[in-house]
């Protein structure tokens, strides 16, 4: 019997404990049992992964990019949620605000989420730069709540939307998951509309260090990918974690974030 693999995760939601207890129960029936450790922020999680305190880290896209940077690319991405491969940033405004694309943000007020949120702060600035706008062309407001959790809680994005409603900003940059959570503008058609959505990029991924053998990580990954949405024991865990299937990671989906981190000189320990 193999010793359990220790998975590290950040406690970004009150569902984290039931999710990981469910995962632990699932893996107990496999050839690769697990236990888990919870962290309050991604910097500590990445430190623990590199130090060997945990065998695997459930990383955000920023945590993955920072792990790659800190290990000179020695770490490996093992698996992601299906929803992680098609993540997007959405720019939204009050309905009828007259935005037609990123270029129309010039001279307007844009509110961003937490500074360590890839979807609501780091990538939006990257997309603006790609559209020919720099930080002085747009009046930026940042809502830095839950820093350390890389925007996982979604709180800063909801606060950004409140800023738009309160006329403290003209537009907000949020993740597609938050946009979906508020009904994509369809529940209250007169409230919000999206005027630009980014290309799809990759979000979270399980990350391993070379100390974990390929054989062992392959075996664990195969067991993870075997979780089945149609299985009533598996589904509640998958629903809480926001996926229908675990899938292999899509590494080229991190290219934009790598570039954004370089452009914005994002510190290693975020």
């Amino acid at each position: 019997m193999n010793a359990p693999l220790t998975i590290g995760s950040v406690a970004y939601s009150p569902n984290v404990v039931p999710i990981w207890e469910g995962m632990r129960d699932y893996f107990a029936e496999t050839s690769t049992p697990i236990d888990f450790l919870l962290f309050s922020n991604y910097a500590s999680l990445v430190d623990a992964l590199i130090a060997g305190t945990v065998d695997l880290a459930w990383n955000t896209n920023l945590a993955w990019v920072r792990t790659v940077a800190q290990t000179d690319g020695a770490c490996r991405a093992l698996a992601s949620r299906d929803t992680d491969l098609v993540f997007q940033t959405v720019f939204v405004a009050r309905t009828g605000s007259g935005f037609t694309g990123l270029a129309s943000l010039r001279g307007r007020r844009l509110v961003l989420g937490s500074r360590d949120s890839a979807q609501a702060a780091i990538l939006p600035l990257h997309f603006l730069r790609e559209a020919g706008l720099n930080e002085t062309d747009v009046a930026l407001t940042r809502i830095n709540s839950d820093v350390g959790k890389h925007g996982d809680t979604g709180r800063s994005e909801l606060d950004a939307l409140r800023a738009v409603l309160d006329d403290r900003a003209d537009a907000a940059a949020i993740g597609i998951n938050t946009w979906q959570a508020i009904g994509r503008g369809e529940l209250l058609p007169g409230a919000f509309e999206s005027f630009w959505a980014s290309p799809e990029y990759s979000h979270c991924t399980f990350t391993a260090m070379p100390a974990l053998s390929i054989d062992r990580s392959d075996e664990w990954t195969a067991n993870l990918l075997a979780m089945d949405w149609e299985n009533p024991q598996h589904r509640p865990i998958l629903e809480m974690e926001g996926l229908r299937a675990w899938v292999p990671p899509k590494l080229d989906g991190y290219a934009g974030l790598v570039e954004a981190v370089r452009e914005q000189k994002i510190p290693d320990r975020w």
Partner: peptide, 14 residues
């Protein structure tokens, strides 16, 4: 709507 999303996210499923 925002309060709703925020409040529900703050409690675990169930």
């Amino acid at each position: 709507l925002l309060d709703l999303v925020d409040s529900v996210r703050r409690v675990p499923t169930g």
